[in-house]
Nucleic acid binder design. Structure first.
Length: 426
RNA sequence: GGAGAGGUGGCAGAGUGGUCGAUCGCGUCGCACUCGAAAUGCGAAGUACGCGCAAGCGUACCGGGGGUUCGAAUCCCUCCCUCUCCGCCA
C-alpha cells in the first residue's frame, strides 16, 4: 500500500516507479481524488465544529433553565444536520475510493533492480554446482516416480481432479524428510524460529500481505469465508500485524513447513504433467521482520539460507534478480533461485526471496518503536521459500536418477530416510 | 450447536446522554533529593487526519460498521473477538 502523502510530495517519482513495471502514470488521478477528499473533509469539519459548539451552548442553556434559547439553538443546528450526515457519507465514499485505488497498485521497485519488461530481462547473479552427467537420457521426474510405483497422478485425479498427486512409500517419506531437513537447517544453523500457524486466514490477513483484493482468483476459499494460504508467508507475516514492536525485538525470523494451496487460475496449459505446478504442495517458508536499515542485508542473508539447502543437497542452481517488469505485486526486489532439472534440461524456479519495504507493513499496520524513543515506524518485511518441497523432490529425482531406474538418496537425507541409500521400485 | 458475561489509553480498571479524550493505580519519560542508586516529591506523556512556516487550531477515534439525538464511551441494530457453563468432537 502506498502512502498518499508520499505520492503528493513526489508524484513524478511515483509515476516513474510505476513505469518501471510497465504501468502508466496514476498520480494525477490519485491526487485529484485526494484533493477532493481533503477539500470535502475541511468543509465537513467546519460544519461539525459549529455543531459541537452549538450543542454545548444548548447544554449550557438547558442547565441555566433557558428553554427558549435552547430551542432557538436547536433550530440552528437542525440546519447543519443534512449537510453533516450526507457529508459524512461522502467522506466515507471518498476515503473508500482512494483506498480501493491505492490497494491495487503494486509496489515500486527499489533502485538498483534491473529494468526490464519480462522474465527475459532478468539478470543472473551467480550459479553454483555442477550439472550431473548421465550416460543415458535422463528422464523427467514423473516418469521416474511412476516407474518406481510411488507417484500416482491418475488416482489423485479420481479423488481431486487435475493438479494433485499421491505419493507413497519412500516418496511420501522423502517429502516428509525434506521438510524436516529444511526446517532443522533453518532453526538449527540459521537462527529462525519454527512456527505452527493457521492454514486458513481471514480477509484482513490476506489483504495485509497483498493477496487481496487483487488476486482472489488465485486462491481457494472455504464455505466459512476463510482463504486457504497460498504460502505460509501469509500466516507468518501477519503474526506482527497491528503491533508496535520494540526495536530490540528485531529482527524476527520465522520458518514454517506447511501445505500451500493455489488455484492456478491463470496457468491453464502450463506444466500440466507432473509435480511442478499443483493445487496443493508443501513449502518451507522463511519470513523476516526487520528495521528498514537492516532490510537489504537481511535479504542477502535470507537468500544465502535458501541456497544453503541446495548446496547441502548438492543440487546445481543459479540465482537471478528479477527485473522490474517480472516482480510480484508487493515486492520491491526479488531473487529467484532456479534449480537444474536434467530431465527437463532446464533451470526451474525453486525459491523466491523478496523484500517488500513497508508495503505490507502499511497494509497490516505493523510498526516498531525505534530505540531512540521517537515515533513508531513501519517495519520492513521479507520472505522467501526455503525451499518449495515438491519441486525439491522433483530436482532430487531428476538429478539423482540411476540407469537402473532407482534414485540415490542425497547423503544429508539418509538419516531421515531410515538410513536408506536408494529409492527403488515398489 | 445452546445459554450467559464482556470488549475503554503500554497494562490494569472507573465512567447518571451534556467541559469525557476520558477518574485512580501500575508502568514509562523528565526534574528535584543522592557520590550513585533505591525510596520519596513535583511534572510530562495517546493515535490519525486536515489547516498553518511555526506556536497552534480544528475534526475524528472508548472492538469494527451503521443508526437514534441539538449532543453518544454511555441508548438501539449489526458484525467481529474474548471469557464462563452445557453439548458434540480429533
Amino acid at each position: 500500500m502506498h502512502d498518499i502523502k508520499t505520492i503528493r510530495d513526489n508524484p513524478v517519482a511515483f509515476d516513474q516507479g510505476l513505469a518501471l513495471r510497465g504501468l502508466g502514470p496514476m498520480s494525477v488521478d490519485l491526487l485529484k481524488l485526494d484533493a477532493a477528499k481533503r477539500d470535502h473533509i475541511q468543509k465537513l469539519q467546519d460544519a461539525q465544529g459549529r455543531r459541537n459548539a452549538l450543542s454545548k451552548e444548548i447544554g449550557d442553556a438547558m442547565k441555566a433553565g433557558d428553554k427558549a434559547r435552547a430551542e432557538t439553538l436547536k433550530i440552528e443546528v437542525a440546519g447543519l444536520k443534512d449537510f453533516i450526515s450526507t457529508g459524512e457519507e461522502t467522506e466515507r465514499n471518498l476515503t473508500q475510493q482512494l483506498s480501493d485505488a491505492l490497494s491495487v497498485i503494486p509496489n515500486i521497485p527499489m533502485t538498483g533492480v534491473p529494468v526490464g519488461k519480462n522474465e527475459h530481462d532478468n539478470v543472473e547473479l551467480h550459479a553454483w554446482g555442477e550439472k550431473p552427467q548421465f550416460n543415458f537420457e535422463p528422464r523427467q521426474h514423473f516418469d521416474i516416480g511412476e516407474w518406481l510405483g510411488l507417484m500416482d497422478f491418475e488416482t489423485a485425479a479420481k479423488l481431486s481432479g487435475a493438479r494433485f498427486v499421491i505419493l507413497k512409500g519412500q516418496l511420501a517419506k522423502l517429502e516428509r524428510a525434506l521438510g524436516q531437513f529444511m526446517v532443522d537447517l533453518h532453526t538449527g544453523t540459521h537462527g529462525y524460529t519454527e512456527v505452527y500457524a493457521p492454514l486458513m486466514l481471514r480477509d484482513d490477513a490476506m489483504y495485509g500481505v497483498g493477496q487481496l483484493p487483487k488476486f482472489k482468483e488465485d486462491l481457494f476459499q472455504t464455505t466459512s469465508g476463510h482463504w486457504l494460504i497460498p504460502t505460509a508467508e501469509a500466516s507468518l507475516t501477519n503474526i506482527v500485524r497491528e503491533k508496535v514492536l520494540e526495536e530490540k525485538e528485531l529482527p524476527i525470523r520465522m520458518t514454517a513447513y506447511t501445505p500451500c494451496f493455489r488455484a492456478e487460475a491463470g496457468a491453464a496449459g502450463r506444466d500440466t504433467r507432473g509435480m511442478i505446478r499443483q493445487h496443493q504442495f508443501s513449502k518451507v517458508e522463511l519470513v523476516s521482520i526487520v528495521a528498514p536499515e537492516q532490510a537489504e542485508a537481511e535479504h542477502s542473508r535470507m537468500l544465502g539460507c535458501a541456497e544453503e539447502v541446495l548446496k547441502q543437497l548438492k543440487l546445481a542452481f543459479r540465482t537471478i534478480v528479477l527485473c522490474t517488469g517480472d516482480m510480484g505485486f508487493g515486492s520491491a526486489k526479488t531473487y529467484d533461485i532456479e534449480v537444474w532439472l536434467p530431465g527437463q534440461n532446464a533451470y526451474r524456479e525453486i525459491s523466491s526471496c523478496s523484500q517488500f519495504g513497508e508495503f505490507q507493513a502499511r497494509r497490516m499496520d505493523a510498526r516498531f518503536k525505534p530505540a531512540d524513543g521517537k515515533a513508531p515506524r513501519y517495519v520492513h518485511t521479507l520472505n522467501g521459500s526455503g525451499l518449495a518441497v515438491g519441486r525439491t523432490m522433483v530436482a532430487i529425482l531428476e538429478n539423482y536418477q540411476n540407469d537402473d531406474g532407482s534414485v540415490t538418496i542425497p547423503d544429508v537425507l539418509r538419516p531421515l530416510m531410515g538410513g536408506a541409500e536408494k529409492i527403488t521400485r515398489a
